[in-house]
């Protein structure tokens, strides 16, 4: 137990936790949106994120991005990365919906069948990017698929620098970008769901599908929309991840997805603002926990938090509702 270390650098650990939690929160939005409308845990959402990171990787390699490009170029690469990752992730999420979940919905299958399908899909995607694509595209895209199942590095777009220090807390430029970008994306989504016509449709279906259908909301379109929105958020998370950590792997989705799901449950699954709160909270708890014990216990801490939350407050910190969230 390293209490002194934790207390002495409490500010630093909090900042680290926030920037880590921001990425969890972005991924958590995908779980929350789908759960809010369909009451379905889209287990394959973690793979939607993974596809996004590979899209960024391939894009940057194709553009021939070098380490530490000048600022103007760096911004261009990041914006392009965001677009490509969002397109890839959103497309993947939509494909999952159309190919796998829709036939099951038609049959009114029990929830466990959805979950098992989602697990199978997740496995398929992990293997696709770990085995099949390297075999097929290893020659064409050696930077991305040259070494099957291995960690692949990406160029550093932004060199990590300390922007300013408050007390003994140093805030780096990357942490700031990750946090601000994630919160901005979430604010945008919140606005979209709560203020636009499409968002009203989503909330209506979440509240009561039958009545929404009677009021002329096209349910299938709403379902497609939420999958795409969740995918876009996962794509944004993928870009921020690539910028911050600079690597990807076919299996990164698993643990990250579990943590994002934990974040969604923590905040109250189905609740958009809850996902933000849950993500940030989980990030901070994890960094504190890793400091207190040792960093190799990090994952255990996240799961223990999940179990404890589900035991004492199964509806999460803010309660679960997409429909009732500021209707």
């Amino acid at each position: 137990m390293h209490f002194d270390e934790l207390i002495g650098h409490l500010g630093q650990h909090t900042v680290d936790g926030l920037s880590k939690g921001a990425i969890y929160a972005l991924i958590a939005l995908g779980y929350t949106l789908v759960y809010g409308v369909l009451r379905l845990i889209n287990f394959a959402h973690s793979e939607v994120f993974m596809v996004g990171t590979f899209a960024v990787l391939i894009l940057w390699n194709q553009l021939g991005v070098e380490n530490n490009p000048p600022v103007g170029q760096a911004i261009l690469f990041l914006v392009l990365g965001l677009l490509v990752a969002a397109a890839a992730s959103g497309g993947t999420a939509l494909a999952l919906e159309r190919i796998a979940y829709r036939p099951l919905r038609r049959k009114n299958a029990p929830p466990l069948i959805f979950l098992i399908t989602a697990i199978g899909l997740s496995l398929v995607f992990v293997e696709l990017f770990g085995q099949v694509l390297p075999k097929l595209l290893g020659g064409v895209l050696p930077e991305a698929f040259g070494r099957p199942r291995q960690i692949v590095g990406m160029p550093t777009i932004i060199q990590q620098e300390t922007l300013f220090t408050i007390g003994n807390t140093a805030i780096t430029n990357i942490q700031l970008i990750v946090f601000v970008a994630a919160v901005a994306m979430m604010a945008l989504l919140d606005w979209f769901i709560n203020r636009t016509r499409y968002g009203r449709g989503v909330r209506a279906v979440a509240q009561n599908p039958e009545t929404a259908a009677l009021m002329g909301v096209n349910q299938e379109r709403v379902i497609m929309l939420i999958f795409v929105l969740g995918g876009i958020m996962a794509g944004a998370a993928a870009l921020l991840w690539s910028m911050r950590f600079g690597f990807t792997q076919n299996s990164i989705g698993f643990v990250l997805g579990l943590k994002a799901f934990t974040a969604a449950v923590l905040g109250g699954i189905g609740n958009l603002r809850g996902a933000l709160l849950g993500g940030l909270f989980l990030g901070i708890v994890e960094v504190y926990g890793a400091t207190l014990f040792a960093s190799n216990w990090e994952d255990v801490i996240a799961f223990v938090v999940l179990i404890v939350v589900l035991m004492f407050r199964p509806t999460g910190l803010l309660g679960e509702s997409l429909g009732r969230a500021r209707a």
């Binding site: 379905l40 845990i41 929830p111 466990l112 979950l115 643990v255 579990l258 799901f261 934990t262 449950v265 190799n296 216990w297 994952d299 255990v300 996240a302 799961f303 223990v304 999940l306 179990i307 589900l310 035991m311 199964p314």
Partner: peptide, 25 residues
């Protein structure tokens, strides 16, 4: 004991976490 009162799909994720906890321990 703590998890069986949960809804079915929550239970699935919690047990998944349990498997990982055992391995990490």
């Amino acid at each position: 004991w703590p998890t069986l009162r949960l809804r079915g799909d929550y239970l699935a994720i919690v047990t998944l976490g349990f498997g990982e906890i055992i391995r990490i321990v």
